[in-house]
């Protein structure tokens, strides 16, 4: 799910990544996961987060990754990863198969973000979602002053080459979550460099001043799993 990134092969027998090697937003995500839980990392890249979760929290983790380079790197780390796509392959998993589904910097690159969210809430009790904030003042300023699609540190590609086809603001996400009966349990607003801001992620200032955010969400009252357009699990055993 992280297109156009290549993952350097982990040398055989290399020591695993430690918390210190993790991207700041991944470290934040790792902190939100309870020890011993079942985790699905959608768009897991080279599996660094899953490896850390397995090593430090005894997590039973699975990954989905679009790029073959990422998949191979993850398998070499000893992480269970399949080559696949958030838009199509989440349907294969049974209801409630995981405690957490992680979608890190991937939501905005999916074909149907709402359906992906529905699938996340179906396969897991909780989801941890991080994404770049298109409402960040630099993006707004870029658009207003240049009249062109923003190119910032968090959104470095030109419009014609970016994998981010469904960008949204923090507010957009919160509105969708409310519509989908998704409860925000935690939200952390981040700066461009991934450091944590003191701003409440659900408030108006974060929507202007933070470059990205991480949300821990769950279904309201652990209630009925949304069906909707995403529908139930695919009848995967069709063959």
């Amino acid at each position: 799910m992280t297109p156009d990134k290549s993952f350097p092969p982990a040398p055989a027998g290399a020591p695993g990544a430690t918390n210190g090697d993790l991207r700041v937003d991944l470290r934040l995500i790792a902190d939100m996961v309870c020890p011993g839980s079942r985790v699905l990392d959608v768009g897991c890249g080279d599996g660094a987060l899953l490896q850390v979760l397995a090593q430090t929290k005894g997590v039973d983790g699975r990954g989905i990754e679009l790029s073959m380079a990422g998949v191979r790197a993850a398998v070499r780390r000893g992480v269970s990863v399949i080559q696949g796509n958030a838009d199509t392959d989440l349907a294969d998993y049974p209801n409630g198969a995981f405690d957490y589904a992680i979608l890190s910097q991937t939501l905005q690159a999916t074909q149907r973000p709402r359906q992906v969210l529905e699938q996340l809430m179906r396969v897991a009790e909780r989801a941890i979602v991080s994404f770049p904030n298109f409402g960040y003042w630099k993006a707004r300023w870029h658009l207003m002053s240049h009249g062109r699609m923003p190119v910032t540190r968090g959104l470095p590609e030109e419009w014609w080459e970016t994998p981010n086809i469904h960008l949204c603001t923090l507010k957009d996400f919160l509105v969708l979550a409310r519509e989908m009966d998704i409860v925000i349990e935690r939200g952390v607003a981040l700066n461009e460099d991934g450091t944590v801001t003191r701003l409440p992620a659900v408030g108006p200032w974060a929507n202007l001043l933070s470059a990205q955010a991480v949300f821990l969400v769950r279904r309201r009252n652990g209630g009925a799993r949304p069906g909707g357009a995403a529908g139930p699990a695919r009848d995967a055993d069709a063959p």
Partner: peptide
């Protein structure tokens, strides 16, 4: 796909 549908521990590489 069949393994995923029973939440098995599976890696897949083409």
């Amino acid at each position: 796909r069949a393994l995923n549908s029973v939440a098995a521990n599976v890696s897949f590489v083409e």
